[in-house]
Structure formats: structure tokens, C-alpha cells
Amino acid sequence: NKFNKEQQWATYEILNLPNLNEEQRKAFIDSLKDDPSQSANLLAEAKKLNDAQA
């Protein structure tokens, strides 16, 4: 299913963002699990935070 693929991709991407700390990473991944339909939005937020902390 589409959300499952998006969720897996977003999880992979978030795990590989270098500037997030473990707590932030875990929070994003927990949110992905809670609502896979928000995968794209959550990934965008994670990338923004990652860039802000660069």
C-alpha cells in the first residue's frame, strides 16, 4: 500500500538526517507510526529541522 512505502521511505530518510538528535529522530518516527498518511509532511518537517541545526 502507498502509505506503507511512503512511511518506509520517510523513516529511512529521517534515520539518515545527520543533524537530528536521537530524541528528535525518535519523535518523528513515532509520529510516522501513529499516522503514516502524514509521512511526506513529517519528512519535510524533519528536513527543515535538520537544516536549521546544521
Rank of each mutant, 00 (worst) to 15 (best):
Q7I: 03
E23Q: 13
I29S: 03
N19T: 03
L43A: 07
E6D: 09
D35L: 05
D34E: 14
Q53K: 03
L17V: 00
E23D: 14
A10K: 02
D34F: 10
D30A: 11
K48A: 03
I29F: 05
N16W: 07
D51I: 10
L15S: 12
Q8E: 15
K5P: 15
F3Q: 06
L20I: 06
Q7L: 15
L15D: 06
W9Q: 13
P18M: 09
Q7H: 06
Q38R: 09
N16R: 08
E23W: 11
K33V: 14
E23V: 12
N50R: 01
Q7T: 08
W9T: 07
A46S: 02
W9F: 14
L49H: 03
N19D: 06
L15E: 14
N1T: 04
E6P: 03
I29L: 10
D34T: 12
Q53A: 06
P36K: 03
T11D: 03
E6H: 05
A52M: 13
N21G: 06
E23H: 10
K47N: 11
A10D: 04
F3A: 03
E23T: 07
D34N: 09
E23Y: 12
A44Y: 06
D30V: 11
L20E: 00
E23G: 10
F3Y: 10
N41R: 11
S31A: 13
Q24E: 04
Q38V: 06
L49P: 00
W9R: 09
Q53L: 05
K26G: 08
F28L: 05
K2I: 14
A40V: 14
A40D: 08
K5D: 14
Q24V: 04
K48I: 12
K47L: 07
N21Y: 13
N50A: 04
F28E: 00
A54M: 11
Q38T: 06
L49M: 12
D51Q: 13
E45P: 00
L42Q: 04
K5I: 05
Q24Y: 02
K5H: 09
F3G: 08
P18N: 05
E45N: 05
D34Q: 13
K33S: 12
Q24K: 02
D35I: 04
W9A: 15
K2N: 15
A52F: 13
E23A: 13
E22W: 12
Q53S: 06
A27W: 15
Q38K: 10
A52G: 07
N16F: 03
Q38H: 08
A54P: 08
K48V: 09
N21R: 13
E22H: 09
N41T: 11
L20S: 00
E22N: 09
P36S: 04
N4K: 03
L15A: 14
N50L: 00
K33P: 02
I29M: 10
Q38D: 10
P18R: 06
D35H: 12
E45M: 09
Q53M: 09
L17K: 00
Q38I: 08
K47A: 06
E6I: 07
E22G: 07
N4I: 06
I14K: 01
S37D: 07
F3K: 02
K5F: 04
A54V: 10
Y12E: 15
A44S: 11
L42R: 06
E13L: 06
I14N: 01
L15Y: 08
K5L: 03
E13T: 09
D34V: 13
D35W: 11
P36N: 04
A40H: 12
Y12R: 07
E6G: 04
T11P: 02
L17P: 00
D30E: 12
E23R: 09
S39F: 15
Q53W: 06
I14W: 02
D51Y: 09
N19H: 13
